[in-house]
Structures are given as structure tokens and as C-alpha cells.
Design a protein around this nucleic acid. Structure first.
Length: 365
DNA sequence: AAACCGGGGCA
DNA sequence: TGCCCAGGTTT
């Protein structure tokens, strides 16, 4: 018997007895529902995704409703999940499906991969789970399972290691019950063959696992080489006017692309000139609040909030496109960057206090 | 505090 | 083709 065949059989047997079969995207299976779940699951774990997924599906039950929705509403439903480029890709892909495929998803690897945000692994996952087509997938869970089971050395980010893992993934994928197998190997990676403390005692393929035999679970897959993080800094202007706090839409790409945030300037001294130049009015009660650091994987962002008031911004300024006067206590449907949401929450809290005269900003962490 | 992650974009 | 990028969550 071939190693691949036996591997798949043991995995399927384990899946039947211990796998998850009641997840929201495992019900009423369709390409659309599986697609949305796969995109969400690329960046976030199952328990976190579930409530987002249910809200998303309630609001956008099919590809047509998603395509018709304004991007702001899509981003709002994504707010907090991170990687907002994926929400924008999702939205663009929905429009392409409606406009170029008459609202029906293509069911070939090539055509699916042509949609924004769908690459080789995601296309394969969608077609195997939703359509039962035999395609290998290679997401983070599968990379971990295969690198350990076959003892593949080297960081999977290199093309050589990636090619080897793809070849293994192809070889292991069975010809029958492909949808269940795809779910099974992802489930195994998520619940048994975990990054930190794999529970090899309950693993159906531990008996011939190279990492298990040589006690190298913590060394495989080989982690990415480390780089040091640069520190960037910015000043966020918390501009309060008669109708709320001024937010601007960020550029569509880059950091927090398409989300709403405070106007930013390079240094605190630029706050008042900014108000004159962009709002045509004077700033009052300008206070720098306590700076804090927002940490990303690739850099750290040093944020100095500056709070100020404007009394009489011109009407043209009030109604400028890409600009909104936001009422923090009346949560409207806008996608907000995480530190922006925190600062807005802080404003609500501060306003609730009798004496808000202190200029200190205290944030957890 | 470090690591994670699938695809897009660009040299 | 081989980097670099994003960003809340987990460990």
C-alpha cells in the first residue's frame, strides 16, 4: 500500500470520529459560502471567524448582494479582522463574478485564480470542498503537517521547499472523499498538529511521522529568518468640531487602506498649520496626549495623539468627500483602524467624566 | 514580545 | 523569480 493512500485513509477515519462537522460554512455548502470562509480563515482562527462569518452572511447572503454593497459596508463588516486588502479583494471579486460570469462562480482552478484575492491554495480549497474536485491545498496548517510528517527541512517561504511541499500535498490527496480530506488535513493542523504543543498522542499519522520519531516537532517547519523591526512615528489629529470628530478616508492601498482615520501630520508642530491649510480655521485648546506604540509584525508605529477644537469650519470643509464628522458615541457604519477605534472609545469615556481637564491619555498595554 | 499567514505587487 | 507587505491574535 502506498504511503499516500494510507495517510489519507487514516486522516479520513480520524475526521469521521473527531473532526468538526458543524461549522457554519459546512452547512448549505456553496462556492460563495466556502469562498468567504476561506478568505476569513486565512488570517484568523475558527472561533474568532464564526461571529464575523454569520454577520457577513446575514448581510451579504449571496455574491450579488455583496457585489451591490458599498465598499464601506463591506469594510465595516470586516472591521477588526485585519488585512483589509482581503475585504477589498473580496468585494472586487464579487463584482467580477457578477459582471464577467453572470453571477455564477467559475469552477476551474484557472478561472478562480483569476479573481482578486484567490491564489492556488484558496482556489483548490474552494473547488475541493464545494465541488468535490480533486485538488491539493497547501495552507499554513497543511505545510506544518506535511513538513513534520515527512521531515521537510527549510523555511517554506523559499521556492525549493515550497515546491517540495506542494508535491507532497499532491501525492497525499486521495481520489475519493476529497472534500472531507481537505477539511481533515486542515483540521488536524488546527487542532492536533499545532504550532506550539502538538498532541501527537491522538494523531492518526504519528506512527510514521518523521518529526515525532526524531522529536523535532518544535523545529519543523523551519521558521522564517528573523528581521529587526524599524520604528516609525506619526501624529494623529483628534479634531473636534460642532458635529463630531474629523475622520478622513485613508488611501486605498497601504496601511489601513480604505479605512477611516484621523488626519496625520509628521510632527506635533504641524497640527495648527494643518487646520489653517485644510480647514481654513484656527485650532483651539491644542493638547498633545500621551504617545503610545502600536505594534505590527514588520514595524512599530509610535503614535502621538493631538487633541484640538475647531469652532467654525467652513461648510465646504464639512461636506468634502472622503471626510466625515464622526460622532463617537453613535457608532456609524465605518471601517476604523484599531488604534483609531481605541482613541475614539477613549473620547467617549472621557466625555462621560465630570472633569476631563487632565491631558493624559492612558491606554491599556 | 515574537510569530503567524496566502496573495498581490514590484524589481 | 524572489523579495516585501499587511495587522489582530495567539503563544
Amino acid at each position: 500500500m502506498s504511503a499516500a493512500g494510507d495517510f489519507g485513509a487514516r486522516l479520513l477515519d480520524w475526521f469521521d470520529r473527531h473532526g468538526r462537522h458543524d461549522l457554519p460554512w459546512q452547512q448549505e455548502i456553496s462556492v460563495y459560502r466556502v469562498w468567504v470562509s476561506e478568505i476569513m480563515l486565512q488570517q484568523t482562527q475558527v472561533v474568532t471567524v464564526i461571529p464575523y462569518y454569520q454577520r457577513f452572511m446575514a448581510r451579504f447572503p449571496d455574491v450579488t448582494s455583496l457585489a451591490r454593497a458599498p465598499i464601506d459596508e463591506v469594510l465595516h463588516h470586516w472591521s477588526g479582522l485585519g488585512y483589509y486588502a482581503r475585504a477589498r479583494h473580496l468585494h472586487r471579486a464579487a463584482r467580477q463574478v457578477v459582471e464577467q460570469h453572470q453571477g455564477r462562480f467559475p469552477e476551474t482552478l484557472e478561472d478562480l485564480e483569476a479573481l482578486p484575492g484567490i491564489g492556488r491554495s484558496t482556489a483548490a480549497a474552494i473547488l475541493s470542498i464545494a465541488c468535490g474536485q480533486r485538488h491539493a491545498i497547501l495552507d499554513g496548517n497543511v505545510k506544518r503537517v506535511l513538513a513534520r510528517h515527512r521531515g521537510v527541512e527549510g523555511w517554506p517561504g523559499t521556492t525549493a521547499v515550497s515546491r517540495r511541499l506542494w508535491a507532497l500535498a499532491e501525492a497525499m490527496t486521495p481520489t475519493a472523499r476529497v472534500a472531507d480530506y481537505t477539511q481533515a488535513i486542515m483540521d488536524l493542523g488546527a487542532t492536533v498538529c499545532t504550532r506550539g504543543r502538538p498532541t501527537c498522542g491522538v494523531c492518526p499519522v504519528a506512527s510514521d511521522c518523521v518529526a515525532h520519531a526524531t522529536d523535532r516537532q518544535s523545529l519543523l517547519p523551519t521558521p522564517r529568518p528573523r528581521r529587526e523591526q524599524p520604528l516609525r512615528s506619526t501624529v494623529m489629529l483628534i479634531i473636534r468640531g460642532p458635529d463630531g470628530v474629523l475622520l478622513e478616508r485613508r488611501p486605498p492601498t497601504g496601511l489601513w487602506g480604505g479605512l477611516w482615520g484621523f488626519p496625520e501630520v509628521p510632527s506635533t508642530g504641524e497640527a495648527e498649520p494643518w487646520c489653517r491649510r485644510h480647514l481654513g480655521t484656527e485650532a483651539h485648546e491644542v493638547h498633545a496626549l500621551a504617545p503610545f506604540v502600536h505594534v505590527f509584525t514588520h514595524f512599530r508605529l509610535h503614535i502621538t495623539p493631538v487633541r484640538l477644537w475647531v469652532k467654525d469650519p467652513a461648510a465646504s470643509v464639512m461636506e468634502a468627500p472622503g471626510r466625515v464628522w464622526y460622532k463617537p458615541e453613535a457608532r456609524s457604519e465605518l471601517g476604523l483602524a484599531a488604534p483609531v477605534a481605541r482613541l475614539l472609545d477613549h473620547i467617549v469615556h472621557e466625555d462621560g467624566e465630570i472633569n476631563g481637564s487632565h491631558g493624559e491619555l492612558r491606554l491599556p498595554g
